[in-house]
């Protein structure tokens, strides 16, 4: 905060510049003293100028699976970092492998409650929570984008592969209606794909339900791959 140099009293329209009005019945000497005092008062009046700096103009928070908040936002919760990598898996029984019946996938994520308001939003183990926000000052900006960096394939210990495009997801949320900020989709076979967006200064969340297409008969094994989700704010 800066305390600026004095401003002249004349800068205050409609205000009187003479705090000590003197009687016109006094002597010339008194009148001159009165004028001098009035001038001194008007010349030294000041105003404070505080410079407001947006010290933390941007904040972002993205949660896929479990996340960290000190508390729900309504109780002053603050977002934190959580390095957990959750998994989504499907175990296909021998009798149905490759029969083209999609196989539901389940997650080890325990995130069911929205940190936005404490509402039980997702159901586990069938759904994976994804949500977050980004804050920025000034007028509303372009939305932040959430992208997934996807390997070409899931791979087993022998190097056998299953295309990532065999995995897709639907999007919903307890009590939701209308479009989801993170809609359903299907993974690409290697590359970066957009999976949703967040308007500035809004909370966005969805629950994803994954499934495996099960259209082929791969070699027996455990196939895995890691998808990295990133958020880019303008």
């Amino acid at each position: 905060m800066d305390v600026t140099s004095p401003h002249p009293l004349a800068a205050e329209p409609g205000r009187t510049a003479d705090p000590g009005a003197r009687s016109s019945q006094g002597s010339l000497r008194r009148a001159l003293v009165g004028a001098a005092l009035a001038l001194a008062a008007s010349g030294s009046a000041s105003a404070y100028t505080a410079t407001l700096n947006p010290a933390s103009p941007q904040e972002i928070y993205l949660q896929v699976g479990v996340g960290s908040f000190t508390n729900d936002y309504i109780h002053g919760g603050q977002p934190g970092q959580n390095t957990t990598v959750n998994s989504v898996t499907a175990t296909v029984a021998p009798g149905v492998v490759g029969n083209k019946a999609p196989q539901a996938m389940t997650t080890n994520s325990t995130a069911t409650v929205s940190y936005w308001d404490g509402y039980t939003y997702c159901s586990v183990p069938g759904q994976l929570y994804i949500g977050g926000f980004f804050r920025t000052t000034g007028a509303a900006t372009a939305a932040a984008q959430v992208n997934a960096t996807v390997p070409a394939s899931l791979v087993d210990a022998s190097g056998d592969t299953i295309p990532f495009s065999t995995i897709s997801w639907t999007s919903s949320g307890n009590g939701d209606s209308g479009a989801e900020p993170f809609p359903g989709g299907t993974f690409v076979n290697g590359g970066v794909q957009n999976v949703g967006s967040m308007a500035s200064n809004t909370w966005n969340e969805s629950c994803w339900t994954f499934s495996y297409a099960n259209g082929t008969v791969p070699r027996v094994g455990t196939y895995s791959g890691v998808v990295l989700y990133t958020m880019t704010a303008p």
Binding site: M1, D2, V3, S5, P6, H7, L9, E12, R15, T16, A17, D18, P19, A41, S44, A45, S46, A47, Y48, A50, T51, L52, N53
Partner: peptide, 15 residues
């Protein structure tokens, strides 16, 4: 009338 506050002191340079 505005009051002379030139004797005041800000403890932070900005907010």
């Amino acid at each position: 009338t505005p009051i002379d506050d030139s004797g005041s002191q800000a403890l932070e340079p900005s907010v």
